[in-house]
Design a protein around this nucleic acid. Structure first.
Length: 309
RNA sequence: GGCGAGGUAGCUCAGUUGGUAGAGCAGCGGACUGAAAAUUCGCGUGUCGUCGGUUCGAUCCCGACCCUUGCCA
């Protein structure tokens, strides 16, 4: 199945542009976002509003409750189920800020799923004997060239995952071929403007009732999953409600974490996807930007998704 | 006004027995196939308040001044 893709850092205005185009064309929107999956986490995730969701069909939103853990595998399975249950009749727009989730749609995604037992076992090894114990374990199990090819070899979480995959019987082949990345369109904005916009958006979230949203969610769900609890905005407001952080400090902290997220997103998109960037500013009229995005999609064509059932 | 404490990186601070300085945070750059709004690697960006004095050499010692802050008036 084919789709038009628009990526970009948080707060660059992807959602509004895609919403506008979808309303013009009748397209559905598939969100590749790790936190939009949580029901009730609306204001802090900048989720499309109710009436926007009434006008456009969204996939990938409101899949889990904040009590449930989420991950790329669960997300991908949910997307496939949604597409199987109600095939997209019109064209499909894919947009979101989570690069890994987009990759899960574009490339074969068939490594063994997470195994809590194996993960916990290696976590204990790491906690008691440190990073070098994980590296040693991998050195023993991998061919020298495969070991040398491990990316990010000082990152315990990634080494843990590799060991988990080996435990599940996968043979890691460093030469494993991946599908060539399609041309994707990206929305960019000068760093200065982006930082301004992030600060404005965070303050707007507070004004729009983020505290009440977090309060209400905490009443409904007494315990949150690790993935939901770590969400930017929700972690800080929860700390504020618990008296650990003043509101001003919480807001500042949310702004900083959002900036850092945007930075990581830009690095990932730029170096993993080499997108065709369309530079914009908050002052550009939405209709103009929508027109430019549509023109870019026409010029470069749709991308093929690897999610057919 | 008097006494005390302090002025060092964007912020909070450490330090230099006198040889122009370094941590955390922020920032910048990188990694990345099931935690990804996660995790992780690298990089110091500086009129050491100002003006004089002593000295081969002052951010450091001395003096004056300016500013901040605490206590007492």
């Amino acid at each position: 199945m084919n789709a038009f893709i628009l990526i970009g850092a948080t707060a660059t205005g992807k959602t509004a542009v895609c919403q506008a185009i979808a309303e013009q064309t009748g397209a559905a929107i598939l969100s590749t976002d790790a936190l939009l999956v949580y029901k009730g986490m609306d204001i802090g995730t900048a989720k499309p509003a109710r009436d926007e969701q009434r006008r456009v069909r969204y996939l990938g939103i409101d899949l889990f409750t904040p009590a449930e853990n989420s991950n790329a595998a669960l997300w991908r399975n949910a997307i496939r189920r949604q597409l199987a249950d109600a095939p997209v009749a019109q064209s499909l727009i894919v947009t979101g800020g989570t690069g890994l989730y987009l990759r899960a749609l574009l490339e074969p995604f068939d490594a063994p799923p997470p195994d809590p037992e194996s993960r916990a076992r290696w976590q204990t090894v790491f906690d008691t004997r440190g990073l070098s114990a994980l590296q040693d374990a991998l050195r023993q199990r991998l061919a020298p060239d495969a070991f040398a090819a491990i990316p990010d070899p000082k990152n315990p979480r990634r080494l843990l995952r590799l060991l988990e995959r080996l435990d599940a019987g996968e043979t890691l082949d460093p030469k494993k071929s991946v599908a060539p990345a399609p041309v994707v369109i990206g929305l960019s904005m000068s760093r200065e403007l982006l930082h301004q916009r992030i600060a404005q958006r965070v303050r707007a979230m507070i004004d729009n009732g983020l505290l009440d949203e977090v309060r209400a969610l905490r009443e409904t769900f007494s315990t949150w999953s690790d993935t939901a609890r770590a969400a930017i905005g929700y972690a800080e407001i929860a700390d504020h409600l618990d008296g650990l952080l003043s509101l001003d400090d919480a807001i500042e902290r949310i702004i900083i974490r959002t900036r850092q997220l945007a930075k990581r997103q830009l690095t990932w998109f730029q170096n993993q996807l080499r997108p065709v960037w369309l530079d914009t500013t908050p002052a550009e009229p939405l209709a103009d930007l929508a027109q430019r995005v549509r023109a870019a999609w026409q010029q470069h064509g749709p991308a093929r998704l690897h999610v057919d059932p």
